[in-house]
């Protein structure tokens, strides 16, 4: 298609999409302004959920199956990047100022702090906004920032540990589900007495896996960085 045809198509598309937006907007307009959805159910069952944060209860108890599959989706992204890109440090690292002492000093202070914040968010998820994904994202950002400051922390990681870190969240999740099933409960039906601790355990392992997955995706699919590539830039 030549560029003028493209421009006409683009305008027509814009008009069409505006119509769709208008229709969906109208549909939203017709919604009543009060609607409780499932919030009453969710809050009524909270005492059996093993957590006092309703969002965490939905994520890791009522609809834990979604979260389990979501972990699989994340692992898929890593596997795909692993296969397609095959590791190697991102170009971003190569252009960063690896010799900047201020940046390095700042990162050295920030990293322990980030790890602390991440752990705090994980714990907070039990009763306030927070949880595994937020914690994992902060942890991963700490790992990424280290790379951007030119600190290669993962090249010495053993190959087996890399794989264990990536999969441990999903292992813990399915493992808990299957073990509960073998004890005569249904899949991921936590016993009320231990629900809180099982959820916390799953969240810790998932948080680690999420962080590992996000860093791996940044590094082109491998958590273990390839030093050779990094040296080229420094």
């Amino acid at each position: 298609m030549d560029s003028s045809g493209w421009a006409v198509g683009s305008r027509l598309g814009a008009v069409l999409i505006a119509v769709i937006v208008g229709l969906v907007g109208y549909a939203v307009w017709t919604f009543p302004s009060e609607f409780s959805g499932l919030s009453d159910h969710a809050i009524a069952e909270l005492q059996h959920a093993g957590t006092s944060n309703p969002v965490t209860a939905v994520l890791l108890n009522y609809r834990s199956y979604d979260t389990l599959l979501e972990m699989a989706v994340l692992l898929l992204a890593v596997l795909a990047a692993w296969a397609l890109v095959g590791g190697g440090v991102n170009e971003v690292c190569l252009v960063s100022e690896v010799s900047n002492p201020v940046l390095r000093g700042f990162v050295r202070v920030m990293t322990p702090l980030s790890i602390l914040v991440s752990a705090h968010l994980l714990w907070l998820g039990d009763h306030a906004p927070g949880g595994a994904f937020q914690a994992g994202a902060i942890l991963a950002s700490a790992g990424v920032v280290l790379f951007m400051a030119g600190i290669d922390w993962s090249h010495k990681l053993p190959a087996w540990l890399e794989r264990v870190l990536l999969t441990i969240g999903l292992f813990a999740f399915t493992g808990v589900g299957i073990v509960l099933m073998l004890t005569g409960r249904s899949f991921l039906e936590y016993p009320p007495a231990t629900a809180k601790w099982l959820i916390l355990m799953i969240e810790v392992f998932c948080g680690v896996s999420i962080a590992a997955a996000l860093v791996s995706v940044f590094l082109g699919g491998r958590l273990r960085s390839r030093q050779t590539v990094l040296k080229k830039g420094s």
Partner: peptide, 13 residues
């Protein structure tokens, strides 16, 4: 039918 986590509808899956 199988209720995951024994949560009945509409809350569970």
């Amino acid at each position: 039918q199988y209720q995951i986590g024994s949560w009945t509808l509409p809350l569970g899956i």
